[in-house]
Simulated assay, not measured.
Amino acid sequence: MSARQRRESRRLPVPPDPARAVPLWARAVELRTEWLNHALCCAPADRDTAENAITALYALLDRPRPRFVWVPSPAAAVRLVPPTPPARVTDELWRVEKQLATLVSRLRDRLDHAIHDHWYRYAAHFPPPPDPVLALRSGADLRSVVTRGVHDVLRAVVRESVAGLVRAAIPEERLGLWWGGQHDVDWVAHYDVHRRVLDARFDAADAEQWQLWAALVRSCGWWWPRGDVCVVVERPLAIRTEPVAGSAYGEVRLHNPTGPAVVFPDGWSVHAWHGTRVPAWVVESPTVELIAAERNVEVRRCAIERVGWAAFIDQAGLTLVGRADDPGNPGCELRLYDLPYARWGAPTRLLLAVNGSVERDGTRRRYGLLVPPWFDDPVDAAGWSYGLTGVQYAQLRRRT
Rank of each mutant, 00 (worst) to 15 (best):
Arg397Tyr: 11
Glu34Met: 03
Trp213Ala: 09
Pro340Lys: 12
Glu173Pro: 00
Val262His: 03
Arg108Gly: 11
Val270Pro: 06
Val217Lys: 03
Glu242Pro: 04
Phe375Met: 11
Thr241Arg: 10
Ala292Glu: 14
Ser9Val: 09
Val166Gly: 04
Cys41Asp: 15
Arg364Thr: 09
Pro378His: 10
Asp192Val: 13
Leu100Gln: 13
Arg27Leu: 11
Gln99Met: 14
Asn355Tyr: 03
Arg6Asn: 13
Arg143Ser: 08
Val283Glu: 00
Trp70Gln: 00
Ala245Ile: 08
Met1Val: 12
Phe126Lys: 09
Gly387Val: 01
Cys41Ile: 07
Ala280Thr: 08
Arg167Lys: 11
Asp184Gln: 12
Leu60Phe: 00
Leu177Tyr: 08
Val96Cys: 13
Phe202Pro: 07
Ala43Arg: 02
Leu165Ser: 07
Asp228Phe: 00
Ala168Glu: 12
His118Asn: 12
Ala135Glu: 04
Thr84Gln: 15
Cys302Gly: 01
Ile313Asp: 00
Pro257Ala: 12
Gly221Gln: 02
Arg240Lys: 12
Glu251Asn: 07
Cys42Lys: 01
Trp309Phe: 10
Glu92Met: 01
Pro171Tyr: 06
Trp179Tyr: 14
Asp377Asn: 15
Asn37Met: 11
Val358Glu: 15
Val89Pro: 06
Ser144Val: 12
Gln211Trp: 10
Arg218Glu: 15
Gly180Thr: 01
Gly362Tyr: 09
Ile115Pro: 01
Asp326Asn: 14
Val104Tyr: 04
Trp35Leu: 03
Gly221Thr: 01
